[in-house]
Structures are given as C-alpha cells and as structure tokens.
C-alpha cells in the first residue's frame, strides 16, 4: 500500500460520486417543486375555511367544510409522502459520500502509521 495506489483506488471509487450527487440533488429539487405546488393548493382551500370563519364566526360551519377538510388532509398526506422521499434521497447522498470518506480515512491512517504519507 502506498499513497499512489490509495489515490488511484479512491479516485476510481468516487468517479461516479459527482454524477450521483447531481442526480440526487436534482431529484430533491423536483420533488420540492411538486410539494410546494401541493402545499399551495391546500393552503388555498384552508384559507377558504378561514375566510368563512372570519365572516360568519366559528360556530357556523362552512357548507363545504367536510369536503374541504378531507381534501386538505389528502394534500397534506401527499406532501408528507413527497417529503419522506426527499429525506431518503438526502440520506442516500450522505451515506454515499460518508462511505468513501470513511474508507479513505482508514487508508490515510494506515499510510501515516507506516510513515508512507508526507505530513500536512
């Protein structure tokens, strides 16, 4: 084991990392755009209920409150699903880089022990 071979091996291991990150972060953004769209829709419905309450007080129910509430809950659930997917993608990106970093740190440690790596 020497710095050159460790470097070659690591470069090979991380050769796809940039593309993976670009893809994952792009997917996170796309999902976020969808999520914002869904959120905008349920906020519009929510504001319909609140507008009615402001005009008529909270004791009188909006004629379509049940229907609106159900739709709002559906959209919120859809948003939550999208967000869970985003969390998974973000954790995947973290795992990918952490895996390579950990391996490199281990190899650097071994090279330093053998005195094969020039000091910083």
């Amino acid at each position: 084991m020497d710095p050159s071979s460790v470097l070659d091996q690591t470069i090979q291991d991380v050769s796809n990392l940039q593309a993976e990150f670009t893809h994952i972060l792009g997917e996170i953004r796309a999902s976020d755009t969808q999520l914002l769209d869904q959120r905008k829709k349920y906020m519009q419905k929510d504001s319909q209920i609140h507008k009615f309450i402001r005009q008529h007080g909270s004791l009188q129910e909006h004629p379509k409150e049940q229907e609106l509430s159900e739709k709002i809950r559906e959209k919120m659930s859809a948003c939550k699903n999208l967000q869970e997917q985003k969390c998974t993608m973000a954790n995947t990106a973290l795992y990918l880089v952490a895996k390579h970093l950990s391996r490199l740190e281990k190899n650097i440690g071994l090279l330093e022990e053998d005195g094969l790596l020039a000091p910083v």
Binding site: I11, V14, Q18, A19, F21
Partner: peptide, 12 residues
C-alpha cells in the same frame, strides 16, 4: 484536483 461539483477526474 476536483470536487463534488465538477467531479474528481482532475486528481488523475
């Protein structure tokens, strides 16, 4: 060199 944005081919 290189980085996560441009890629790591530069190290080769």
């Amino acid at each position: 060199g290189g980085n996560i944005i441009k890629g790591f081919d530069g190290f080769n």
